[in-house]
Write a protein that binds this DNA or RNA. Sequence first.
DNA 1: GACATGACGTAAT
DNA 2: TATTACGCCATGT
Length: 114
Amino acid sequence: MNPVRDYPEVWLSFYRIVRRIPRGRVATYGQVALLAGKPRSGRHVGYALRALRGTKHRVPWQRVLGRRGARHGGISILDPMGAAAQRALLEREGVLFDAKERVSLEEYGWRPRR
DNA sequence: GACATGACGTAAT
DNA sequence: TATTACGCCATGT
């Protein structure tokens, strides 16, 4: 069975959005939720992405960050190993973190048209 | 159905 | 800028 296909439809809509985030750019959970038509379901984007651990998929989950302020994003994964993995993946595609473990959304934020 | 949980976000302090 | 408080809502129990 396909581990992704069998997830709830809401989650699939999140995955569709996340797949559109280009290499080297990042989005926030709230942004993904908004684009998926669920303005106040940012938390659930995290749920959906967490469910991908250890599965075969093509979802660039590392490009989704939590809001750390008006212009910054940061890792929200609770598991330290997962957090380190996310940072490593992002740095490998050119996304740099500042001294406070934050990413500038001005610089790396994904700004989709429509 | 009630209740707790959580990879969130915003406003208030 | 940092911390706290609270709203939100799909899932799992």
